[in-house]
Amino acid sequence: MAERLDVAGAWQRVSMRYAAVESIGSVIGWLLVGVGATVPLWFLHDGDMPMWAWLPLAAAVVLAIVSVVWSFLRTRTIGYLQRDDDLLVRRGMLFRRFVAVPYGRMQIVDITQGPIERMFGLKSLKFVTAAASSAITIPGMPGSTAEELRDHLVAVSESRRAGL
């Protein structure tokens, strides 16, 4: 396979613990789907399940395993790079996306933390520009790095404030 699109630089990786967060979320999701499909079949057959009736659950388990592997691979690709004039965020392995936001264009910097993220001590940073399609998040920021990066970005963008 030919060399893929890439942007060189000293990329800051996000914590690999975020892969665990993503895996737990997707495993729970797939198991719910599998169980939800199996329980009606169980009642339909009065507990005497034919072999094929286990297929949905098996498929869900396989998908859950795939998504766990997937989230580890994908987390490795998430990164950000602070350049002189803009913040660069990358994400995705097959579907690669690099987004560059000039510091002056950042309108809001949000920090969010879900319940699973809280267990692992991670936070997500979300940037809002005037364009809805920008849609930039950096998940899996460990410890206080999220706050530090936010404060830094807010300070920089305040000093370079440029209308719309």
Binding site: A2, A131, L164
Partner: peptide, 24 residues
């Protein structure tokens, strides 16, 4: 507002890319 550089798997095979400009 921001610029995105994108490449999906099929574009990847063809060594092509997409550049998207974000506006309100």
């Amino acid at each position: 507002q921001s610029v995105a550089l994108q490449q999906g798997p099929i574009y990847g095979l063809a060594r092509l890319g997409r550049v998207q400009f974000h506006v309100p």
